[in-house]
Design a binder for these strands. Structure first.
Lengths: 214, 214
DNA sequence: TAGATTGTTAATCGATTAACAATC
DNA sequence: TAGATTGTTAATCGATTAACAATC
């Protein structure tokens, strides 16, 4: 199915395809052409065909793509059914919200533990999980073998925690801290969510817009 | 200062430069060369010089860049001191966390109102703000003229809310919903934060890693 | 068969990297 | 002046778009 290494730009587009195709399937659409999908998504048909062909031929000449099948294939590529055991470190504002708001199960992960160094948060219930103290972290990792970690901790704490987690065998990180995980752990799979950076990009856009209207 | 239009790829790197330079300044560093910065950030020196030169010459041949000055210049480009009046729509898990966790003031915005359609949340205190009902939204926008909005609402509600806000004169959106704002409002400045997409990208990476180790 | 649309190759465009002259 | 490092031009690389033959 796969054809060598697929570029990062293509991978970043897959979740969006997956979302659109899920919607279309829910709406009862059976087939769709690359042209029609391109119009709905604001892309070129060429790009869509190129993207899909990185993983092999999902379509049929003269017909297009079967929506349900394509949706499933992309889900498979993304690994949405992997249910990789995952822990969260940091149960502050952001951690709590992420744990409650994100459907990990539908996106390839299973949240099995939440940890915080603040003793006041210990025992707090988040969904079906109870926040544990970081003293329990090592033992938990040894017995439950989580593969991924969500880091919702401030930057100063992140370096040490990351070192620990890597030593416990965790290889994938969803990183909400400002700590540059990838620089210290080049082998880890890291997905950064720098909300502050995103907001500043918006600021740039708004500033430019106002400058143009002056 | 500016030299025509700057590419999106460059803009996306600016907040990271800003962060690193802020750190270096805090550490007391006076000057830095593109080569040294490149090593710390994991980029090429060439790219750094190209990036900075999109906005004019910030450096000095034979010397490098003044850290404090460069930090300030990039902050200015990003508009970190604009304090653009901003409202948030949606005070659920995610909205609450974003409002409490993000320092809007340091990133070009000033959060002046939070709205939710759920009457049970009305009156809830978040930081220095009190959640208002959506009935007050129109009046508030007319009197306080917010320029940006943070959308922390589910997808089904987003289309209608976005239309309203655009009609009230809001031109920049920090969009946490899965609604594709930019497709419907091409003129708006939109920064999407698709947390689910980000998590699925991580899933792909983890899956690939495990495949490789098999 | 004729029409439609893919899969794939070729052309274009843009972004990154390399090289080096300018200059502090 | 000599050494260092920028600003900028040229070369390379990668990603997107266009074109079209293959084929359903």
């Amino acid at each position: 199915m796969s054809k060598g290494t697929v570029s990062r730009s293509v991978i970043r587009r897959l979740p969006r395809y997956y979302r659109f195709l899920g919607e279309l399937e829910k709406q009862g659409l059976i087939r769709i052409s690359s042209r029609e999908l391109s119009e709905r998504m604001g892309l070129t048909a060429s790009q869509i065909r190129q993207d899909f062909n990185c993983f092999g031929g999902f379509g049929q000449q003269g017909y297009g793509y079967n929506v349900k099948e394509l949706h499933e294939k992309i889900g498979e590529i993304l690994g949405v059914n992997m249910a990789s055991p995952t822990i969260m470190i940091g149960a502050g504002n952001l951690g709590k919200a992420i744990a409650a708001h994100i459907d990990f199960n539908k996106r390839g992960f299973k949240l099995i533990g939440i940890f915080d160094s603040n003793p006041e948060l210990e025992g707090m219930q988040i969904g079906s999980l109870e926040v544990k103290g970081t003293a329990e972290l090592e033992q938990f990792c040894k017995s439950s073998k989580p593969e991924a970690a969500v880091l919702c901790i401030p930057k100063p704490a992140a370096a040490e925690v990351a070192n620990l987690l890597v030593s416990y065998g965790i290889s994938a990180f969803w990183n909400f801290s400002h700590y540059d995980l990838k620089l210290a752990h080049a082998n880890a799979v890291v997905e950064n969510v720098h909300l502050g950076d995103s907001l500043m990009t918006l600021s740039y856009g708004l500033k430019k817009l106002e400058d143009e209207n002056k």
